[in-house]
């Protein structure tokens, strides 16, 4: 009698508490340690909200390199974000999308994204989990709908399995897809350059590098600030307006005239390999970039005040200074990151 009551109670509890989801043992997935470098700030990305796990990372990586995220089935995220070049579209001025379509902006490197507060050249995405909507749906990039992508994933057993293990609710849905991509991307921490080794006392700059560092600190670090080499602000650096794009920059996001021609100050980590440079990839070499800052800056609307501090606009640099700066910028390359098997497609 007592037993039947007990069984009844048990049954009662079970019936009301368990959803239709099947029980998945937690042991199938393991948390990943976020590789926080000692001298970096705390991540902006909320790792408690979306903690990277083995399976979440694996799912994110699979999505990142899957052409089915595009309408033609061949353009993956990794198509324009190639690891060896700090996840940029090497030598391509602007990104290339489906059927050879051309974008209007240069694919940005994917490095230390956990530390960034807004994404894209104009800050169009306020959160990493929201960023992927842009390339997936833009007609000159992957030209697909999120709905179609989800349909494709839902008909693939491998994906269904990965989603079910990687996420508590196990669902193939938009949030889990974007969270998996974020888990893959936030793990891309790059902090193992010669610059970092010098900082840790494990390496020494050459004379040219040291001179370049001093120049950098006095002439560049106002915008390319701190350990991330960017203050994450939006500024107009005086590039001549390219009439092919007439890109208004951050004004597209805010509608403000005062944001016209402003773009996100990029990080300079791995800058030597992430050519070409600027939001439209117009410069192929660092020398061209420095020549531009020395003598090419134009007084366009909203030109940043840092370029208007002397009689002439721009940042005056001698040829020797340019060589020294380039020597310093070359110390920001992290070969271990660029070759890290965890992130590579094959």
């Amino acid at each position: 009698m007592k037993l039947s009551l007990l069984i009844f109670c048990l049954y009662f509890c079970l019936a009301c508490n368990s959803d239709e989801d099947t029980y998945v043992p937690i042991s199938e997935d393991k948390a990943l340690d976020f590789p926080q470098p000692d001298f970096f700030p705390q991540p902006v990305y909320d790792l408690d909200e979306n903690p990277p796990t083995e399976k979440g990372f694996e799912l994110g990586k699979k999505l990142f390199y899957d052409g089915r995220l595009s309408s033609t089935g061949v353009i993956s995220c990794g198509f324009c974000h190639i690891q060896e070049f700090s996840f940029t579209h090497h030598t391509h001025e602007v990104s290339h999308g489906v059927n050879g379509a051309l974008g209007t902006r240069n694919a940005q490197p994917l490095v230390n994204l956990a530390y960034f507060n807004e994404f894209s050249w104009d800050g169009a995405a306020p959160h990493l989990d929201a960023f992927s909507i842009i390339p997936i749906t833009t007609d000159v990039e992957m030209n697909e709908t999120v709905t179609n992508v989800l349909n494709k994933l839902e008909s693939d057993e491998e994906y269904i399995d990965l989603f079910s293990i990687a996420f508590e609710n196990g669902k193939v849905n938009t949030q889990n897809m974007f969270r998996a991509l974020s888990q893959f991307m936030v793990m891309m921490v790059s902090a193992d350059t010669k610059y970092d080794k010098v900082l840790e006392g494990n390496a020494v700059f050459t004379e040219a590098e040291a001179a370049g560092k001093a120049l950098f600190d006095s002439k560049c670090s106002g915008c390319h600030e701190g350990i991330l080499f960017t203050d994450q602000s939006y500024r107009n650096n005086g590039l001549p307006i390219d009439p092919r794009y007439n890109d208004i920059g951050r004004k597209r996001v805010t509608g403000l005239e005062t944001d016209k021609y402003k773009f996100k100050v990029p990080s300079l980590r791995n800058i030597a390999v992430s050519l070409p440079y600027m939001h439209d990839g117009r410069f192929k070499t660092l020398k061209e970039v420095l020549d531009f800052y020395d003598s090419g800056v134009q007084l366009t609307e909203n030109l940043d005040s840092v370029f208007q501090q002397s009689n002439s606009i721009g940042i005056s640099l001698s040829e020797t200074e340019k060589e020294q700066l380039i020597a310093f910028l070359n110390t920001l390359t992290d070969d271990n990151f660029l070759l890290d098997r965890r992130f590579s497609e094959f």
Binding site: P126, D129, A130, I133, T138, V146, L150, T174
Partner: peptide, 28 residues
């Protein structure tokens, strides 16, 4: 805005997309 894109707000993307209620270039 404080919720975007957290707490499942992302899961509204397909509905919004089918109804042309997304600015794809601004992820909003």
């Amino acid at each position: 805005q404080t919720n975007y894109p957290l707490n499942g707000v992302d899961n509204f993307v397909p509905t919004a997309e089918e109804n042309q209620m997304l600015w794809s270039w601004s992820a909003g």
